[in-house]
Amino acid sequence: MDKEYEPNIIAFLCNWCSYAGADLAGVSRFQYPANPKVVRVPCSGRINPMFIVKSLYEGLDGVWVSGCHPGDCHYNTGNYYARRRFALLKNMLSHIGFEEDRTLFSWVSASEGNIFADKAKEVTARIKKLGPRKKLLKNRDI
């Protein structure tokens, strides 16, 4: 019997909002899929776009980045810088023919436990729909 395909997703969450949002979702017992594996970062501005490309290069099925809503950044402006970087990166990845839904971005605040759970569901569903990744995979067998 085929096991259902479960995508392997990396989630970069900012320490002050989205990570706290994930915490709240857990404390509040909101259900969400276990596919996103969380990496806590100080700020969405800390996320070097190379982290995203590297995650894909290392074989993950999708990348989810989440930070504070505009105006909420703990460092005032980190997420504004991040927004510009991600906009360009996402467009470029799609330009080269990479599925757009494999790199997803969102804002989730510390009080939005339910929204975090919803986003986690949406991210997982979107990436699951694309199926196992075929592009940018190392193809040499060792």
Binding site: P70, T77, Y80, R83, R84, A87, N91, L104, W107, K119
Partner: peptide
């Protein structure tokens, strides 16, 4: 340079 700055009104339609 554009990535060294930002605007409060940058487009963010790409967000989910």
């Amino acid at each position: 340079p554009p990535l060294g700055t930002f605007s409060l009104y940058d487009k963010e339609e790409f967000l989910i």
